[in-house]
Design a protein around this nucleic acid. Structure first.
Length: 846
RNA sequence: GGGCGAUUAGCGCAGUUGGUUAGCGCGUUUCCUUGACAUGGAAAAGGUCACAGGUUCGAGUCCUGUAUCGCCCACCA
């Protein structure tokens, strides 16, 4: 025992084993006709990314699945890689250059791109290295990058294919424009946040009249680009004004009043200013009514020469100036506070501007059709299923996708003379197949098996991959999608760097170990629910690893020979003790549960089943029971085999500690990673052993309870008289009396049928038995009375409800017979229990 | 404006087709350094399952509504 430390040290083991696994090539997966394929493609982290808790959760789940399937005999491929993340990366490198006082424009496109590549060579694989610390068993030989040559070719091919098919077009439309990044964004990249703003009511004077039309707007600066005022044709208030001319304030431009159904009579004043170049609705009206499109902004959201005297002002500066001027001219009728959803750039959080510009688009409706069908037909299943609806709803209302970006870092739009690059997601959506370099691999592994991702990314990525899979491969890209929750801090806020509430997974790994991080986060995360984390929660995983460490330390120091007998053979040949049959039964029941849970993506359930089995069954009861007969051959076999199998089942969750412990077991096996996943041995599941053992556990617990409440010194042994109802139970007790004697510190155990209660005994009742602990001289009558009274009232409460039910004729008539029987039995049981306890109360003084 | 999730012990969560004395972890109380583990062991306290109706012999579980919190979607200017 002395040579093995009593505390598990993750630091020493983790790097050692990871290197070992890599050297052995255990993570590698290849085409193997003898094996079934199982494949997960990693959601490629951005090269700018550093590992956060979301990654930790996401990748732990993937690693559990991959390791589970690998052990089950699949050729299990976890395809790793990174995403070039166009805007995000460009921003990072620009910031870095800015520190040296350099703008990207100073360098020019080519030089700037060189800088980005340099950056990516230096920092781009940081997150990959961090994933390794987590234990991720990706096939790193295959690591892909979305800007790899082959990958770039796939992107080009995809573009050309769609272009040829007429599914890509170029044109002038209103898109979301980020004035800071100075690029177009897709609808999904403009994140709408409810923002407190104002609704400004502005008087628009009618030409040759003293009358006004009052319009309401949240963005008064756009009035400089107004080319009409619109009202609803059914709106009686304005009917007579349709066709009249308005003199646009500040600009003195003559604009017409038009009628359009798009206008909501009930909003604001029912009259709306129309700015076709700066609002998507107005754009539509502009097209319909052939209005003039006046762009008043430069790409950086500074007003241009079309803005008259406001030219050169920033949009928000201009807003203030315009409001000032309107006030002065008494044209600002009123200002109302108004909450509305304002789009923000998902990369830099700048308020985006609806902006008219020439962009490339993908027609989405035709692509969406097969993607909708695949999900409706169940070819792709979402876990939890509720995401199906979210997905379908989005797909059925899909809009065309703006794919051109006015940045430098990315795939060039493959059209001669084009300087724009493609949306990052235009490369990511090819990920499940473009990552395969040769056809054989692709044919073997595609469609992939499971996709594990977060909800934020369903529209960006999941939905588009499904479309791309069908369009380019003619097949769905994966069979199942598991959507896990968001990682939050313990107050419920999303963890983010800007909020300063992140818990760094690497710090947790350093302090608690990678296994602790993995196990804790998995056992805390209910299916599809968000997880609230705080640092102290990781101690549970650490403690569990330590528990396993010490249990195996105990087993190993007591093993005298290596006995790797088959459990089924042993079970049939040897006359195993109750506890042995019980622990084997529990092992396989647990395994059955773990299998079921993992197959249904119920990871926390699987983790908690294992925790309960190892800790509370194997350690708390089995190890304790076997201490007195540790030298027996059968005991040794079972102690060893159950541990060894438990380690295997636990391996996907806690790969490091299980490998370390496995390697120390007295067998010469190479690695737990190439062991097979245990089979459920149904023959060894023994209901009778379970119920008998549960009964013995109850007896032990009751004696312990008496000991504790009676304040019997912990090392004082007691006498116990067990009065049994059934003769048959005498044998059961006698055969297993050591369990009770050792676990409850009993010196003499006296079982018999319907024995008299010894004088001055503390009493407890379990099914079929009364437990008497004679305590002559030391019994505290008041304590015992209180104990019994409490117990009696507990049972009486339950009995009350039960009796009511059993008096209900409808219940007796309509409930299933077995339920009625069960309840009747219970009533009997409770009644006798109460009787016995009451007798004990009466006899207390004698 | 639509949609979704949550509401169960002080805290964090389970509770899969309705029938268990409603469980687990952390925390709390008492006892224990007994030769695997104090990152431990034993015992215990703690819940009218958000609220109101309904279905049912029977509801934490199903239905309707309400409230609170939180997400997502949407061209209310």
């Amino acid at each position: 025992m002395n040579d093995i430390p009593s505390q598990y040290n993750p630091k020493e083991t983790e790097s050692k084993w990871y290197k070992f696994w890599m050297d052995k090539g255990y993570f590698n997966a290849d085409v193997d006709p003898k094996k079934k394929p199982y494949c997960i493609v990693i959601p490629p982290p951005n090269i700018t990314g550093i590992l956060h808790m979301g990654h930790a959760l996401n990748n732990t789940i993937q690693d559990i699945l991959i390791r589970y399937k690998r052990m089950q005999g699949y050729s299990a491929l976890w395809m790793p890689g990174t995403d070039h993340a166009g805007i995000a990366t460009q921003n990072v490198v620009e910031k870095k250059l800015a520190k040296q006082g350099i703008k990207r424009q100073d360098l020019g496109r080519e030089k700037f791109l060189e800088e980005v590549w340099k950056w990516r060579d230096e920092y781009g694989s940081t997150i990959i290295e961090q994933l390794k610390r987590l234990g991720a068993s990706c096939d790193w030989r295959r690591t892909r990058f979305t800007m790899d040559q082959e990958y770039s070719k796939s992107v080009k091919d995809a573009f050309r294919h769609l272009h040829k098919k007429g599914l890509i077009y170029q044109g002038d439309y209103i898109i979301n424009w980020c004035p800071r990044c100075q690029t177009a964004l897709s609808d999904e990249e403009a994140a709408h946040h409810d923002t407190d703003g104002n609704l400004y009511y502005i008087k628009y004077p009618l030409k040759d009249s003293k009358e006004f039309v009052i319009v309401a707007t949240t963005r008064p600066e756009t009035m400089l680009g107004d080319t009409a005022v619109a009202v609803n044709p059914k709106d009686k208030r304005y009917k007579s004004l349709i066709g009249k001319i308005i003199i646009l304030p500040l600009m003195k431009r003559e604009i017409k009043i038009i009628a359009d159904d798009l206008v909501d009579k009930d909003f604001g004043t029912g009259a709306v200013k129309v700015t076709p170049a700066h609002d998507p609705n107005d754009y539509q009206m502009g097209m319909k009514h052939k209005l003039e499109f006046i762009n008043i902004m430069r790409p950086d959201a500074v007003l241009n020469e079309n803005a008259g005297e406001y030219a050169g002002m920033d949009r928000f500066e201009a807003r203030e100036a315009i409001l000032e001027d309107l006030k002065e001219r008494k044209l600002l009728e009123k200002v109302e506070p108004h909450k509305h959803a304002v789009g923000h750039c998902y990369r830099c959080h700048t308020v985006v501007e609806p902006y008219l510009s020439k962009q490339w688009f993908v027609k989405m409706k035709p692509l969406a059709k097969p993607a909708i069908e695949a999900v409706k037909k169940g070819k792709i299943k979402f876990y939890p299923a509720r995401w199906t609806k979210v997905y379908l709803n989005w797909m059925e209302n899909i809009h065309d996708w703006c794919i051109s970006r006015q940045i430098w870092w990315g795939h060039n739009v493959p059209v001669e003379g084009e300087t724009d690059v493609l949306d990052t997601w235009f490369s990511s959506w090819l990920w499940p197949f473009a990552t395969f370099k040769n056809k054989k691999d692709l044919e073997y592994f595609y469609p992939t098996s499971s996709l594990i991702t977060a909800q934020e990314i369903i529209f960006f990525w999941v939905a588009r991959m499904i479309m791309a899979g069908h369009e380019f491969m003619g097949k769905e890209p994966f069979a199942e999608v598991y959507i896990h929750g968001t990682v939050r801090d313990d107050t419920g806020k999303k963890m983010s760097k800007s909020l300063g509430n992140i818990i760094d997974p690497l710090e947790i790994i350093d302090e608690f170990g990678a296994d602790a991080l993995r196990f804790s986060i998995i056992s805390l995360t209910a299916v599809g629910q968000d997880v609230y984390l705080s640092k102290d929660k990781f101690s549970s995983g650490r403690n569990f690893a330590n528990k396993i460490w010490n249990a195996s330390r105990f087993v190993m120091t007591n093993l005298t020979e290596v006995v790797d007998t088959d459990l089924c053979v042993l079970y049939k040949k040897a006359n195993l003790e109750l506890a042995d049959r019980w622990i084997l039964s529990s092992l396989y029941t647990t395994l059955e549960g773990v299998n079921k849970a993992l197959d249904a993506y119920r990871f926390s359930e699987a983790a908690n089943l294992l925790y309960d089995f190892i800790w509370h069954k194997y350690c708390d009861w089995y190890l304790e029971i076997t201490k007195t007969r540790i030298k027996e051959r059968n005991t040794q076999i079972i102690l060893y085999k159950v541990l060894e199998k438990s380690l295997r089942i636990l391996h996907p969750f806690m790969p490091f500690v299980t490998e370390e412990v496995f390697s120390r077991l007295p067998h010469k096996r190479e690695s737990i990673m190439i062991e097979t996943w245990p089979h459920v041995q149904k023959d060894l599941i023994d209901e009778k052993a379970v119920s008998q053992m549960d009964w013995l556990i109850q007896i032990v617990t009751n004696i312990r309870n008496i000991r504790a409440e009676m304040l019997i010194p912990f090392d004082k042994k007691v006498r116990v008289v067990l009065s049994l109802n059934d003769k048959k139970d005498i044998e059961l007790i006698k055969n297993n009396e050591l369990y009770i004697k050792n676990l409850a510190k009993v010196e003499s155990l006296e079982p018999g049928v319907k024995l008299a209660r010894p004088k001055q005994s503390a009493t407890a009742v379990v099914k079929g038995a009364e437990i008497y602990v004679p305590l002559a001289g030391i019994i505290d009558l008041d304590v015992e009375r209180a104990r019994l009274l409490k117990k009696i009232s507990e049972i009486e409460n339950v009995l009350k409800a039960l009796s009511v039910r059993l008096k209900n004729k409808d219940f007796l008539k309509k409930a299933p017979k077995d339920i009625v029987q069960k309840e009747t039995d219970k009533e009997m049981q409770f009644k006798t229990d109460i009787d016995k306890l009451k007798q004990s109360m009466d006899l207390l003084k004698s």
